Amino acid sequence: MKYVLLVAGTLALGIGAVSAQQDIVKDRQATMKATGRALGGTLSAMAKGDKPYDQAAVDAAFATLTETAKKLPAMFPDSTKGLKEGTEYASSPKVWDDKAGFTAKIESFTKAVADTKAKVKDLDSLKANVGAIGKECGACHETYRLKS
């Protein structure tokens, strides 16, 4: 009987650990989607003239990007390597195999967000500076994201 309880307990812990890892992946996906909306749906859309300039929306978009920059270092724990991700995109194994390179990309993104946020005061400064963040996102995606 003790053996059955031990096995059941061990299985429950294992299932709980997998569930926790899947939650990390879901949070990672939600964060990346919010980041895409903030950058592409708000800042880039305003810079292109597809949306009118709105400082409150700019501030909200930068708050999202800043939050992403803070969360990124912890969003890809080793325990999530190889887990099933989204249907459209997935993390490349290079995220874990090239930790130094991936960390450098995170640092570049964080710097671009902070530098751009400090410079954007109106539509003209948004147009002149928002591309730096998009460049960092694209550079990371080229190496560390796979199309499913």
Results as ranks from 00 to 15, higher is better:
residue 38 A to C: 03
residue 130 V to G: 01
residue 5 L to N: 13
residue 2 K to N: 14
residue 135 K to Q: 14
residue 102 F to C: 10
residue 119 K to S: 13
residue 7 V to L: 15
residue 94 K to D: 15
residue 119 K to R: 12
residue 24 I to P: 00
residue 8 A to R: 11
residue 60 A to M: 06
residue 130 V to F: 11
residue 148 S to C: 09
residue 52 P to L: 09
residue 11 L to N: 07
residue 79 S to F: 00
residue 47 A to L: 03
residue 131 G to Y: 05
residue 83 L to I: 02
residue 18 V to M: 04
residue 57 A to P: 00
residue 145 R to A: 14
residue 144 Y to G: 11
residue 133 I to T: 08
residue 48 K to Y: 10
residue 16 G to M: 01
residue 26 K to F: 05
residue 145 R to E: 14
residue 15 I to S: 11
residue 74 A to L: 08
residue 104 A to M: 09
residue 77 P to M: 10
residue 64 T to E: 10
residue 94 K to N: 11
residue 105 K to M: 15
residue 48 K to D: 14
residue 143 T to P: 04
residue 108 S to T: 15
residue 92 S to R: 04
residue 102 F to V: 10
residue 66 T to L: 04
residue 44 S to P: 00
residue 47 A to N: 04
residue 53 Y to D: 06
residue 39 L to I: 05
residue 122 D to M: 09
residue 75 M to F: 03
residue 118 A to S: 13
residue 21 Q to H: 11
residue 77 P to Q: 12
residue 103 T to N: 12
residue 117 K to V: 06
residue 58 V to I: 10
residue 135 K to A: 14
residue 25 V to T: 01
residue 24 I to M: 09
residue 17 A to Y: 07
residue 114 A to R: 02
residue 141 H to K: 10
residue 128 A to R: 11
residue 142 E to I: 11
residue 39 L to H: 12
residue 131 G to F: 03
residue 111 K to G: 10
residue 36 G to Y: 04
residue 9 G to S: 13
residue 89 Y to F: 15
residue 18 V to I: 12
residue 51 K to Y: 04
residue 29 Q to G: 05
residue 132 A to E: 12
residue 117 K to Y: 03
residue 6 L to Q: 12
residue 63 A to R: 08
residue 125 S to P: 04
residue 73 P to C: 09
residue 113 V to T: 07
